[in-house]
């Protein structure tokens, strides 16, 4: 045990540097996915037939294929048509593309659960349809969708580990390097498992608090 701790301790700085990458990918991709997710959800619920179909097509395509394939297409495929990303950017783009589709579905369900009388009430006050959607429906829809959205946020935190496959030096990638150099794969992945356990637990606890304060049962 003490030997294991010494091993873990000696590699902790490297792993924490990797954790920095992990959290960066996660945070940026989540924010991008949040914005894109709302655009997709609104297009799907309120858009005309073309934008609705485009949104549905995007969501079904992304949800029907693995993140790993999406990441390979972004990082290895797109350069063939002249779009080149650095590994870190490619990972953020791929995870952003991925989470946007899932977030859109949760937002859509939230929007659908807002009572129709809410728009009518907003219109009665003289708000335009767009204003009613933006100021009345979306805030309520988000609060209704909060539990599923929080779940998605935690899921994507774990999926940032896929970025190691396109050689981003995040937590998983660092562990693989240390494993290859020391041949102590099992030990290092135990350390990594503990770090993810801590990250996921902390994020879950924070989101539970957010949910408790802002969540809306319908």
């Amino acid at each position: 045990m003490s030997q294991w701790l010494a091993f873990a301790g000696s590699h902790l700085p490297t792993l924490l540097a990797g954790t920095g990458y992990t959290l960066t990918i996660w945070a940026v991709a989540m924010i991008a996915g949040f914005v894109a997710g709302w655009v997709l959800a609104v297009a799907r619920v309120y858009g005309g037939s073309i934008s609705r179909r485009l949104a549905v097509g995007y969501i079904e395509l992304i949800r029907g294929t693995p993140l790993l394939v999406q990441m390979f297409i972004v990082y290895l495929g797109l350069p063939q048509i002249g779009i080149v990303f650095a590994p870190l950017t490619a990972a953020i783009v791929a995870i952003g593309i991925n989470t946007a589709a899932y977030q859109a579905e949760y937002f859509r369900a939230g929007i659908r659960a807002v009572r129709p009388g809410q728009i009518a009430a907003a219109r009665a006050l003289g708000l335009s349809r767009g204003q009613a959607i933006r100021h009345v429906v979306l805030p309520q829809g988000f609060r209704i969708a909060l539990p599923q959205w929080a779940n998605e946020v935690v899921i994507e935190l774990k999926y940032t580990s896929v970025a190691y496959a396109i050689s981003v030096p995040e937590l998983m990638g660092r562990a693989k390097e240390i494993g290859a150099a020391s041949f102590r794969y099992f030990a290092i992945f135990c350390v990594v498992a503990v770090i993810y356990l801590v990250l996921v637990t902390v994020v879950t606890l924070v989101l539970d608090q957010v949910e408790r304060r802002y969540g809306l049962r319908h």
Partner: peptide, 21 residues
């Protein structure tokens, strides 16, 4: 809780290298 908190890739490596011992 353990299996839900840890990324699939980490579990794959843990099992593959852990059992290989």
């Amino acid at each position: 809780r353990f299996f839900r908190a840890i990324p699939a890739i980490v579990l794959l490596f843990l099992f593959y290298y852990g059992i290989s011992v």
